[in-house]
């Protein structure tokens, strides 16, 4: 006998025999129901809600019409497995590094420690892929534990700050640089690169999650993507510039997204 047999028997007013003993020894919920002489089981069994009132045929027809829009390239790519869609992000990373490395390589490249560049970009790439992986978590899985998203947000915001505060490598004379103007330029360049990932989002994301942490994880990934191109392009190594022009990109994009979401909720409630 299993749970269902026992529940059915006692809900119908019957009593369970010796063949249920083995199951009852290991199943606490069934024991409660049996000890209860089936009262609760009967009450629950007879309390199933009625069928909801809805025109399912109409809903089905509307759904089929909606599925028609899924036949294009967007629909096909969105149906790819998560790893395949993540590969698109890897491709974007490679394009980003190749573009900046080819056309806008930092002018102190021959003097700047290569290991530092590789380390920073490697860590950034790791955060981007991790953030995107969790942002694209399929809906048929339960949400990931909240600490994972928190750790990714912390990494996306604090790791660029940590790199900015690392001992500086003065490869470019300070007098050559206008910190403020250059910081603004770097901030905009970083956000622009992040925008490239967000433009890719309709291909990557299957939708359905608007209010959770997943869309914000994608924003965090976009902000960190900005760090990669900047580290390849910008020769200014002074912490103040790195903080105000580079490290601020993920935090700035996340703050903008939070503000946008809050404003959206407000207008939804007013409507």
């Amino acid at each position: 006998m299993d749970c269902r047999d026992i529940e059915q028997t006692i809900a119908e007013g019957g009593s369970v025999g010796a063949d249920a003993d083995l199951h009852l020894r290991s199943c606490e919920p069934c024991r409660v129901l049996v000890d209860d002489r089936g009262q609760l089981a009967r009450a629950l069994g007879s309390s199933r809600p009625d069928e909801p009132v809805a025109d399912l045929d109409l809903l089905g027809r509307e759904l089929e019409a909606g599925l028609g829009a899924e036949r294009g390239i967007l629909g096909r790519v969105r149906a790819w497995p998560r790893a395949a869609r993540l590969a698109l992000v890897v491709a974007l990373l490679l394009v980003d590094v190749t573009f900046f490395g080819t056309f806008m390589m930092r002018r102190d490249f021959d003097r700047y420690p290569l290991w530092r560049l590789v380390l920073a970009d490697g860590v950034y790439a790791g955060i981007i892929l991790l953030a995107t992986w969790y942002a694209l978590r399929p809906l048929y899985l339960r949400p990931a534990p909240a600490w994972i998203a928190r750790a990714i947000f912390a990494g996306a915001i604090l790791v660029p700050v940590a790199f900015a505060l690392a001992p500086e490598v003065p490869t470019v004379p300070a007098r050559d640089i206008s910190y403020v103007a250059y910081a603004w330029y770097c901030f905009m360049t970083g956000c622009g690169q992040g925008l490239a990932l967000l433009l890719l989002a309709p291909l990557l994301d299957r939708g359905g999650r608007v209010a959770g942490t997943e869309p914000l994880l994608l924003i965090a990934a976009a902000g960190v993507l900005g760090q990669i191109g900047l580290s390849v392009e910008c020769p200014v190594n002074y912490p103040l510039h790195l903080l105000t022009g580079h490290a601020i990109v993920p935090a700035g994009m996340l703050l903008a997204a939070l503000w946008w979401r809050r404003a959206g909720r407000m207008s939804e409630r007013i409507a």
């Binding site: 509307e62 759904l63 909606g66 969105r78 149906a79 497995p81 399929p138 939708g207």
Partner: peptide, 17 residues
């Protein structure tokens, strides 16, 4: 009803999974 349709849309999008 909206969520019901969304669910089937998501089932469609995740069908190859």
């Amino acid at each position: 009803q909206d969520i019901l349709q969304q669910t089937f849309l998501q089932i469609h999008r995740a069908r190859f999974d």
